[in-house]
Write a protein that binds this DNA or RNA. Structure first.
Length: 216
DNA sequence: GCGACAG
DNA sequence: ATCTTGTCGC
């Protein structure tokens, strides 16, 4: 069953938050890293999962659908997860790591999209947000690799990471089955040229194109 | 009470 | 998320 109201959704989060695993180091050298993203046109949507191996695409899945849940800060996952799970099921490859568009532990109840998707799939996951959602932080240094802690109620819930020299930092937080240090390392490995991970760029491009495919 | 608020 | 091309700068 899937929650139909904000109250039910929050109740689901309160249950799932206890299942999030942030202890182990996680995969040291993930071979198949998946990027996930969803594009919208009104209530039409296209969800894409693209799997990269050595930064090269080796598998992909795209599904079209309609929105079921409105966007609400804190409940973002309920809007995107159904379509993303559909797409994940269609992959012929099982990813070692999921890189999500949005936050993981950097969430009011410590269960952002990345945590939620990680728990539902059982796969290690990382959240990479383009903008902040919660927490306080100091401006990280100007160079690629510079980072500062993202604090929420005195807890480190993420890292504000500069992935390229002199560009806006991204907000990295653990999703599931790995720690923040490992997550940060992986995101740096996935950003050799641009501000956003190659996985995110590939998924974004893919779902955006799929949305136009059966439209304008 | 008021504002802020992933995508 | 989305509205939106060319353009300034390294």
């Amino acid at each position: 069953m899937w929650p139909q109201t904000p109250e039910e959704a929050v109740a689901v989060q309160e249950q799932l938050r206890h299942l999030v695993d942030t202890t182990g180091p996680g995969p040291t050298e993930p071979q198949y890293v998946a990027g996930l993203d969803v594009a919208y046109d009104g209530d039409e949507l296209a969800a894409a999962v693209v799997v990269l191996h050595n930064l090269q695409e080796v598998d992909r899945a795209v599904v079209r659908g309609r929105t079921t849940f409105p966007y609400q800060p804190g409940l973002f996952a309920f809007r995107e997860i159904p379509a993303l799970l559909d797409a994940l099921e269609q992959l012929r490859t099982t990813p070692d790591l999921l890189v999500c568009d949005g936050q993981g532990l950097a969430h009011p109840r410590r269960i952002g999209l990345a945590c939620h998707l990680g728990v539902l799939t059982g796969l290690p996951s990382i959240g990479v947000g383009k903008t902040a959602f919660v927490g306080e932080w100091a401006e990280p240094g100007p160079r690629r690799g510079d980072a500062s802690d993202l604090l929420l109620d005195g807890e480190i819930v993420g890292k504000v990471l500069r992935t390229q020299n002199k560009t806006k930092p991204v907000f990295v937080s653990v999703g599931h089955r790995l720690n923040l240090a490992t997550a940060t390392k992986h995101i740096l490995d996935l950003t050799p040229h641009y501000r956003l991970p190659e996985t995110t760029r590939a998924a974004d491009h893919t779902c955006r194109q799929a949305l136009k495919g059966t439209h304008g």
